[in-house]
């Protein structure tokens, strides 16, 4: 259905979801890339060599979550903005790092509306950090604090009108 609606299905997402055990250890990248296209910046940008693209740049990326540190470099380098970092190491909440290319940027501490893959608002989330530097090339890395059961759901957000 992804190729009809543009919304990755539960089955699509299940294929790229790390184990709960891994997610609870700390941040790691979730690569929501479901179509073979000629593209490899995720693999070439990873400072730890955790992402493998094979010999053919059309192959889907394969990530080694034991090597991934969840640094987020691949998130801002993915031309499709299809990579997210999920961190469930805290018992009562989760953190999600999202690529964000809209202005104005949110500020740390802002409460924003967390949004799912289908564009439907899930509820409130708090902005933990807004990372930006020259190497990110205008794709900002926004960290949201969300309730734990949204960790694999939140993929976008909107600022509340102030």
């Amino acid at each position: 259905m992804l190729h009809v609606t543009g919304i990755p299905t539960k089955e699509d997402v299940a294929k790229v979801t790390p184990s709960l055990e891994r997610l609870q250890k700390g941040p790691c990248a979730v690569i929501e890339c479901f179509q073979k296209i000629p593209c490899n910046p995720c693999a070439t940008s990873c400072p730890f060599g955790a992402i493998e693209r094979g010999n053919d740049i059309n192959e889907l990326p394969v990530i080694d979550w034991e090597v991934c540190t969840g640094c987020g470099i691949c998130v801002v380098n993915c031309p499709g903005l299809a990579i997210f970092v999920v961190d469930m190491s805290q018992p009562d909440r989760a953190a999600v790092k999202l690529p964000y290319e809209f202005l104005p940027l949110p500020k740390v501490g802002d409460v924003v509306t967390a949004i799912g893959r289908d564009g439907v608002p899930l509820g409130d989330a708090k902005v933990l950090k807004v990372q930006d530097n020259k190497a990110y090339d205008r794709t900002r890395l926004v960290w949201l604090e969300v309730q734990r059961d949204w960790a694999m759901e939140v993929r976008h957000f909107s600022r509340k009108e102030s």
Partner: peptide
């Protein structure tokens, strides 16, 4: 991937 970012 373009479709997904617009859809969300």
């Amino acid at each position: 991937v373009h479709a997904a970012k617009i859809r969300r």
